[in-house]
Design a protein around this nucleic acid. Structure first.
Lengths: 162, 162
DNA sequence: ACTGTCCTACGACAGAAGTAGTAGATTCAA
DNA sequence: TTGAATCTACTACTTCTGTCGTAGGACAGT
């Protein structure tokens, strides 16, 4: 079985995926508008990226709103972060410890951050043993942190004609 | 001043830099041989990468051993890890905490790893206040974890004749 | 002085990535 | 039914990356 987490994404593709993970699902235009002002490419540029992401199997179109396709992530943020984290680890001989040390020394991680990690660990310990928990994976992240305002704007809003 | 940490490195370039950070300084051949067997490209391929790294200002040639140039990193591992880590953070809205949580949940970080972080932090607390500590940066990492056996092999070894 | 080995400097290329324009189909509101 | 506003599906181009090959220079040993 072709591991979905095998897909290699470029920086820009990751950028778009990031937006998509946030929105949960979105149209090309929504994704474009979600990109930081500074580096916001033309609509068709984003479209191309989305198409390529589709070819790579990282996203898929789920429905149409108005005449626009709405895309949804296929590869999870989790799986992707895993991969990227792994690459980072590579620089430390695969030792998370060595990495932690440097991150802390460089001031990227505070005591609170570490504590949070421990708490997460505790939470995990507590709520496990039940149904298939653990490394889950499988479907797109449902952890859309912010407003999952998919399909808003003008694209298919107050249209009920016919 | 042009931030040296601004240099964008590709995956493969990072791979080579990783080898160079380990060795401290090395010739093209040494770098090539340090790459994992599976994906060890031709000598000239590595050479090209090194040249491009030189153009980007990520490495520089420090001397010649025999007739081979010896390169040394200019951008630090630390600065690079910082950048990459920052990119990862981007997926979590810049919140190290959120990231820690996910990393822990995904089983990438164990309690020991977190502890190590805390210890590093403690060490930091303890040994600070003295000479220029802190976020240092500036010169190439001197933390060559393993054998900094730069310039070994045949390239300029047992050649003392004339 | 000759020769084999190892480097360096370039030059080439194919494929990936980034960036967009265009023609034609859809949709929506008058 | 018309027209403006959008989209989609291509097509195109330029850079960037990954990969090498080759010609010619340096050296070390014979």
């Amino acid at each position: 079985m072709a591991k979905e987490s095998e897909v290699k994404l470029t920086r820009f593709e990751l950028e778009v995926m990031g937006a998509l993970w946030e929105l949960g699902s979105a149209s090309v235009r929504e994704l474009q508008e979600r990109l930081p002002e500074g580096k916001r490419p033309a609509y068709t540029t984003v479209q191309t990226i989305v198409y390529r992401l589709e070819e790579k199997g990282a996203v898929r179109r789920v429905k149409k709103v108005g005449n626009a396709h709405v895309f949804e992530p296929v590869v999870t943020k989790r799986a992707t972060v895993r991969r990227l984290f792994g690459e980072l680890l590579g620089f430390f001989g695969g030792s998370p410890r060595a990495m932690m040390a440097q991150l802390v020394e460089a001031g990227h991680l505070t005591l609170e951050d570490l504590r949070e990690g421990e708490e997460a660990l505790a939470r995990l310990e507590a709520g496990k043993g039940a149904a298939g928990a653990g490394t889950d994976e499988g479907a797109a992240d449902k952890n859309a942190s912010k407003g999952s305002a998919a399909a808003s704007r003008k694209a298919g809003e107050g249209r009920g004609r016919r």
